[in-house]
Amino acid sequence: MSAAVPSMPGTRRFALLRHGRLLTGAILTGALVAVALLSLLWTPEVPTRLRILAKLKPPLSEGLLGTDQLGRDILSLLMVGTANSLSIAVAAVVLGAATGTLIGIVAAMRRGALDALLMRMMDAVFAFPPILSAMMLSALLGSGRLNATVAIGLFTVPVFARLARADTKRILRRDYILAARGAGKNAARIAVDHVLPNIAGAILVQVTIQLGLAILTESGLGFLGLSISPPAPSLGRMLADAQTYLTLAPWMALAPGITIALIVAGFNLLGDGLRDRLDVRRDVSA
């Protein structure tokens, strides 16, 4: 998994590439988030509006990016689809990060049987790739926003739990923790005052990287019809529709795919850049 992917150490001639990473990532991500936010206020067309007579029109002939099989404006669908994907990814990763970090810190500080039990549970959860759990959960929750959020969030829990546990253990060995214990601080205080601030950087980097993965996963779920329900636009479902009309309207397949790749690359670059900047230990989850 990408969590374990170390960043590239510095290059010489292409140093700009390295230092530019944070900036490039920030610009890419910022721009796409801005587009997503804009879609809440304005889109060129109402994304769900059908213009049957203007269906399957190529880019520029009807709207900037053309229309789909129902005559909907692809640019508008793309903007709202991006907003939907982002909101699901953010909700899922924030949920997963909060739960996972809590579990990781508790496991590291309590150690012993609880630690073993929690980490075995994390192993079990980690065995279900999000697509698999989304398939199972869709039967319970119905396929929709909630299903996708829970399935993706669930998978990130063990990632954050392992990361938080490893970092917490490292910090617990430091002298000032011993001093704090000596001063009679209880475990909860130590966790809040000393552990959290020290692992926050690593968690933040991991959140950024997991956001990229979550976007990828959400698009896959959308493609299979397991994410946000129609008629709400979704990048993955746009690609599923596009497959049917691949020969007739290839533009339907291009725009959503490129958008997904740009968002994910944006988050990855941002994560790498942050890691360099915050000087976070690299091989976090191995």
Binding site: K55, L56, Q69, T244, Y245, T247, L248
Partner: peptide
């Protein structure tokens, strides 16, 4: 299955 492609 797909009327749009039927014309082709």
């Amino acid at each position: 299955g797909a009327p749009e492609l039927f014309a082709s």
